[in-house]
């Protein structure tokens, strides 16, 4: 792994990073409750434990950059700036949701923020990110595409096809592998002969680094370096973020495939607790700051729930709208 850079951040940035991670954590904890109350249905995949990855990477992106994520994308959407109200309404399937309620938890879209899903086929988002990056280059623009996926995607053909294509064409794609060690219930070593994902990516001919995905500062620094290189005309970069999912794969998962002790061990390395501890030790934030940010996040979640519950359903008459594009008004 990349050595952790002793990276000076000021109090303002520390508070910002913490606030973003807390918003995700509190939002999703509420989602889990709402799921048991059957207010959120379908599949629900929580990001709990991996917040440092989305928050760290998003710091490196500008407004014109594109983001492609997976079905575990609430954290990415929030960190990208998708309003929490629209995200919660999407969880509820209401028409005020970010995808008009049509996608649900797994398919969050917000084109105004260049947030292109929410792709629920493992590996399916990678080629799209390559295309978004290609469009930037062909249009003479310097935007990059950030593409998030889990280590399970490494077994898919689309992973290998796209890494090769992006490297071959020198496309500004930042591939971010969120290696949480389990593809649903299949441990990495049970599905890959070579478990060093960074090495696989490097083999395609692009800079590839592995970082501690529990460390938001390390993720941010690595993403900044990669994005800077791509803005300067560089091709694709690969970032393996070693992380862990504290909660189950989805709400139907009894977690028979891993030891509780292992989960507890990783919890000690949780991105919120380690970052908070470090910031406190450096005198950047105090306990009151943490509590205040937590309260703010909870209040935002409360408001989002109110917003979602007060929102309408899309009328059934609109069922067939947008199967094909409508002319812009």
């Amino acid at each position: 792994m990349e050595p952790v850079v002793a990276h000076d951040i000021g109090r303002g940035h520390a508070l910002h990073l913490l606030a973003q991670m807390l918003r995700i954590r509190q939002f999703e904890d509420r989602c889990a409750r709402l799921y048991t109350e059957q207010k959120i249905r379908g599949f629900l995949h929580l990001y709990n434990g991996e917040e440092a990855v989305a928050v760290g990477v998003m710091q490196a992106l500008g407004v014109a950059d594109s983001v492609v994520a997976t079905y575990r994308e609430h954290g990415h959407a929030l960190a990208r700036g998708v309003p929490m109200n629209a995200l919660m309404a999407e969880m509820y399937g209401r028409r005020t949701g970010s995808s008009g309620g049509r996608g649900g938890s797994m398919h969050v879209f917000d084109v105004s923020r260049h947030f292109y899903g929410g792709n629920a086929i493992v590996g399916g988002g990678l080629p799209i990110a390559a295309g978004l990056a290609l469009a930037q280059r062909l249009r003479g623009l310097d935007g990059v595409a950030a593409c998030f996926f889990g280590e399970g995607a490494v077994a898919e053909g689309e992973f290998h096809e796209t890494l090769n294509l992006a490297a071959l064409w020198h496309l500004p794609v930042l591939f971010i592998c969120e290696n949480n060690l389990y593809a649903m219930g299949t441990a990495l070593a049970r599905s890959e002969a070579i478990t060093d994902i960074r090495a696989k990516a490097a083999a395609y001919g692009q800079p590839a680094v592995a970082v501690d995905g529990m460390d938001v500062i390390a993720v941010e620094a690595a993403a900044q370096r990669a994005v800077k290189a791509m803005r300067g005309g560089g091709g694709s970069h690969f970032l393996e973020c070693r992380t862990y999912r504290f909660r189950a794969h989805s709400m139907f998962d009894a977690q028979l495939y891993r030891d509780k002790a292992e989960v507890e061990e990783w919890r000690k390395r949780g991105p919120l607790i380690t970052f908070t501890t470090r910031c406190k030790a450096q005198g950047l934030i105090a306990e009151e700051d943490f509590l205040r940010l937590e309260r703010q996040a909870d209040a935002e979640v409360d408001a989002a729930v109110m917003f979602a519950e007060g929102s309408d359903w899309e009328p059934v008459a609109d069922l067939e709208r947008y199967v094909y594009a409508e002319p812009r008004a």
């Binding site: 799209i128 978004l132 796209t162």
Partner: peptide, 15 residues
């Protein structure tokens, strides 16, 4: 899969 998907992405990206 990669180049068809890249076509989709490029279309989303304004091409």
């Amino acid at each position: 899969s990669a180049f068809v998907g890249a076509g989709i992405g490029a279309a989303l990206g304004g091409m």
